[in-house]
Design a protein around this nucleic acid. Structure first.
Length: 923
RNA sequence: GCCGGGGUGGCGGAAUCGGUAGACGCAGCGGAUUCAAAAUCCGCCGCCAGUGAUGGUGUGGGGGUUCGAGUCCCCCCCCCGGCACCA
């Protein structure tokens, strides 16, 4: 029996008072330890994780949305019998704390801990079903100790290593950036132009895991396709051949450059016989050499280096180049091949040089046309896919002259031409021509043969090329996890022994913007070498904060492990069943976490999801929260923004926004449309004000109702009012039920069983509607489409409010319906559901109630209403007995008044009957 | 340029297998209640024509498949997100 019976009734307030009921519900959950997660046998586990926040000061709407989604899933699973874990913590290291310190003179530690305390209160006031006993902050030594510990294991295994490399230096933040932190040549955080610097630092060999990180994507059906695509593109695996053109190019001292080899990488080795020139990047040594005595070339190279790196520009950029005057020797033909500098060749990918085959590469083609270089066709894709499809398209014209002419024309249009470029020239399904001994070979055969020949001459071989680079983790910052290394003049770089971990970061430093304050802290800096005992110096670089967030999910899962990074409980909870966060982490954080999880596996720490050790089974990327943007041009030509609640909007007759004025001065402001809530545009809405005015349930309901989780969400004050209005009506209906209806129901505690058979049709209809809505809500929950779950709840209330209230039977049907509504509502608005469930005596705690499932008996009906279409147009409906078969339905439909009217005496050509749906009479 | 995701009323958004397009909400309009207002309740609400019954039309545009298309196929336009000039 899933239908909870009420036992008696208490007196309840007639007004919805969110503050009061929310505090009471939260107090109840605290006292009952409702969300404490323990290992439980015999129940499936459900680990629901939302990306932890950076403690920036206060919660923003994006957090509220993110955590409400997670909470709905958590509570829904809990009520369905899962053993759930929903933890929360703080991504607490990072630059904003240092910036705040520079500004206010407060130590980053104090600033961070104060923010955590405040934001924790905010989170608690939203009523999330979080197991707070598992809370962690990445800036606490008990957490980052294990960053250091695993770093040392990685050092042991060669996964972490030190090297000096040209790095991306952010001149504003005074720190090194990873390749992926450089966006369009600028720092991802500061937007400052990134410089190149040579600095020693520690790297993680993520490229050693590239293959696994790529192939395991195929085993993540619970991830959005686009995130997997983004990761695959980022890893960027390509198969090809790396080979060298030989040369005898020497510098002024007569030294042979690069051992006389110009290396290139190509995925189209089958076109090697079509090479008519080589192109090198502006930064390539050959280019540098050639430019020494060639001012024009030097100028061109300089121009290339400064050229735009914006993708949009780059993709449409004119291919430009300049000859170096140098030439190299083709390894197979022995021909001299001129070397050009090309602005479309990137030093950072492959060898920084390419073989150019203008006939079969669009960029090379454009380049060759522009500079009048030879174009040599070496692939014949004559009967290609392109051709077959054109032939198929045109084949119906075969047999007449026009048709033949069209086919001839089609054929002509796909013939290789040195005059214009066609995309299919680059197809791989042709065969080699004009290629000597390789003539007639297809792509694979040609690549194999050519690679073998190059290998025999020791001029090259097949190679897999990756775009992914190793992960540089050293940061010249204070507020981060210290890298556990000691520099000794005698012994070099010595790892800190395990028993001296953690290397604790002093918490009383106040950065002043002049570099890392640790450099001035002798108590931190000075130490004894663990090997020889002589005075030594501690490493002052700290780790990239992406390290902190790469394994917090595993730490939550092993709450009690003080003497290990994680314990066996991690294998119970992991992998995370549902991970929820912003799309902005699609590449970096998620890739690093996947890498880290595999490293933890290889160190023997974890064994979940063997053999792949993927940390996140399902991923939901929630959309951003948007709001209107208003601005004015200032006298100086800048832009000043105004908060949406400080302007009045005007609407035209159609209801569209036609203008807006600032309330302060009544003068117009520019409406900039809708965009992400941001501090700079002043269009953020403070969750705190919202909670104080309407309560957490209203905030949560609006967030869920306004749009599906993956889509953007447009803020709407009126929408919030609507959510509040709905909850007031829910409360009012609960009150009405208690005062007017509960008394009608038979004596307290008596077992009541509703069967559709004995219900009058109106009540049977209501009951059926409630169960149908429940069925819909359950289906939508499964799709994680919470906006329609919320509307189902609204429809349920609408139905209940319209129901007759004049009999014990009616009261019982309403009672059942209300019990369904409260339970479906409870994951979204847990406080009001909790309060009404207890007030109306459905039970002590709605969290303990079983999730409702629709009853088949309530869904059956005697008569169905089918849509009636005549000649494909909907003309009305026809009522038929539920038991009627197709033939009977057809008879009833044809005999119906509507059909008679619209058929106008014409005979039915055909009758389509879709049982349970419609009848279409074709005339 | 390439790869994703989209385009449905005044707005946010529904429509599960191809089966009554516009659920639910917001805004708007009309009414009830009220001394009045707020709150609440009732009704209307895609567009065009019509007093109305009703008819026509309608899911970015154009074709197609089908008894029937927002949904499937082809072509085109526009918007959003991502990116790799990746050899």
């Amino acid at each position: 029996m899933i239908w909870t019976q009420r036992i008696g009734c208490r007196n309840m307030q007639d007004k919805y008072n969110p503050t009061q009921i929310e505090q009471a519900a939260q107090a109840h959950w605290n006292k009952a330890q409702s969300f404490k997660a323990e290992r439980v046998a015999g129940k499936p586990k459900y680990y629901c994780l939302s990306m932890f926040p950076y403690p920036s000061g206060k919660l923003h709407m994006g957090h509220v949305r993110n955590y409400t989604i997670g909470d709905v899933l958590t509570r829904w699973h809990k009520m369905r019998g899962y053993n759930v874990l929903q933890p929360m913590g703080w991504d607490a290291f990072g630059l904003p704390a240092e910036n705040a310190a520079i500004k206010n003179g407060v130590p980053p530690a104090k600033w961070t801990w104060d923010n955590i305390a405040y934001m924790k209160k905010q989170l608690q006031s939203l009523g999330f079903a979080i197991d707070w006993e598992r809370e962690l902050a990445t800036c606490s030594p008990s957490y980052y100790k294990w960053n250091q510990w695993l770093f040392l294991r990685m050092l042991d295994k060669g996964i972490a290593y030190k090297k000096t490399q040209v790095v991306n230096w952010d001149p504003v933040d005074q720190t090194v950036l990873a390749n992926e932190q450089v966006i369009d040549g600028c720092g991802w955080r500061t937007g400052a132009l990134v410089e190149k610097r040579e600095i020693p630092g520690y790297y993680f060999n993520i490229t050693g895991y590239a293959d696994e990180l790529l192939s395991a994507l195929d085993h993540l059906p619970g991830w959005p396709e686009r995130v997997k695509t983004m990761q695959a593109n980022w890893i960027g695996k390509s198969y090809g051949v790396r080979f060298a053109f030989t040369h005898d190019i020497r510098d002024e001292q007569g030294t042979l450059l690069d051992d006389g080899k110009l290396w290139v990488f190509t995925t189209r080795a089958d076109t090697i016989m079509g090479v008519t020139f080589c192109a090198v990047a502006a930064e390539h040594p050959l280019a540098t050499l050639a430019a020494r005595n060639n001012p024009a070339l030097a100028a061109f190279i300089e121009k290339c280096k400064q050229g735009s790196v914006m993708e949009a520009d780059v993709a449409t950029m004119e291919k430009e180049g300049m000859p170096t005057g140098l030439s190299v020797t083709h390894p197979l033909t022995g021909e001299a091949v001129p070397v050009w500098v090309g602005n479309y060749v990137l030093m950072s990918y492959g060898e920084g040089a390419v073989m150019a085959v203008p006939a079969h590469d669009e960029r090379d083609f454009g380049f060759a046309k522009k500079y009048d270089l030879p174009i040599k066709q070496v692939i014949d894709a004559g009967v290609s896919l392109e051709f077959s499809s054109k032939l198929a398209e045109e084949s119906r014209w075969l047999g007449n002259e026009k048709g033949r002419a069209e086919i001839a024309e089609a054929f002509e249009s796909i013939k290789f031409s040195a005059e214009h470029w066609d995309a299919w020239y680059a197809e791989k399904d042709g065969v080699c021509v004009n290629s000597g001994k390789y003539d007639g070979l297809n792509y694979e055969q040609a690549v194999d043969a050519i690679a073998a020949d190059l290998k025999a001459k020791q001029h090259g071989d097949k190679k897999v090329q990756w775009r992914l680079r190793d992960w540089g983790v050293s940061r010249q910052r204070y507020w981060g996890c210290p890298i556990p290394i000691i520099h000794c003049e005698q012994c070099g770089d010595v790892p800190v022994p395990d028993d001296q971990l953690p290397v604790v970061l002093p918490e009383d430093c106040v950065p002043d913007g002049s570099g890392n304050p640790l450099l001035k802290r002798d108590d931190f800096l000075k130490c004894a070498c663990p090997k020889c005992g002589q005075p030594a110096r501690r490493e002052t670089d700290t780790m990239d904060t992406f390290v902190d967030s790469s394994w917090y999910y595993a730490r939550y899962a092993s709450r009690r492990s003080n003497d290990a990074m994680v314990d066996d409980e991690t294998n119970y909870w992991m992998p995370v069943d549902q991970y929820i966060g912003g799309i902005e982490h699609a590449i970096l954080h998620l890739l690093y976490s996947r890498f880290w999880s595999k490293v933890m596996r290889d160190v023997g720490l974890v064994s979940y999801d063997a053999p792949r050790a993927e940390p996140f089974a399902h991923l939901l990327t929630q959309g951003m929260v948007l709001n209107h943007i208003f601005s004015r041009r200032t006298d100086k030509g800048g832009i000043e923004y105004y908060a949406p609640d400080s302007v009045d909007m005007q609407h035209d007759a159609q209801g569209r926004i036609s203008g807006a004025t600032l309330r302060d001065d009544g003068k117009p402001v520019d409406y900039q449309g809708i965009g992400t809530m941001s501090k700079s545009k002043l269009n953020g809405v403070d969750p705190q004000a919202l909670i104080e005015q309407y309560g957490a349930d209203t905030a949560r309901f609006f967030m869920m109702f306004a749009s599906p989780p993956e889509q953007t969400l447009e803020w709407s004050d009126a929408g919030v009012d609507g959510a509040y209005r709905f909850l007031r009506r829910v409360w009012a209906f609960g009150h009405l039920f208690q005062t007017e209806l509960s008394g009608l129901i038979g004596k307290a505690g008596a077992a009541r069983e509703l069967t559709s058979a004995k219900l009058p049709s109106e009540l049977a209809g209501l009951r059926r509607e409630m169960h149908l809505l429940l069925k819909q809500a359950n289906y939508d929950l499964g799709k994680q489409q919470f906006n329609t779950v919320a509307s189902s709840c609204m429809k349920m209330l609408n139905a209940l409010e319209k129901a007759p209230r004049d009999s014990a039977l009616a009261a019982e049907v309403i009672e059942e319906g209300l019990s369904i509504l409260l339970r479906v509502l409870s994951p979204i608005t847990p406080h009001i559901a909790h309060a009404l469930w207890a007030e109306l005596n459905f039970g002590e705690d709605i969290l303990q109630a079983a999730w409702p499932e629709p009853l088949e008996a309530a869904l059956v009906q005697d008569e169905l209403e089918l849509v009636l279409q005549i000649a494909g147009k909907t003309r009305g409906s026809v009522r038929v007995p539920a038991s009627a078969d197709k033939a009977a339905i057809e008879q009833l439909a044809l005999a119906s008044e509507t059909a008679q009217r619209y058929m106008e005496g014409k005979p039915a050509k055909k009758v389509v009957v879709v049982p349970g749906r419609l009848v279409n009479i074709v005339v």
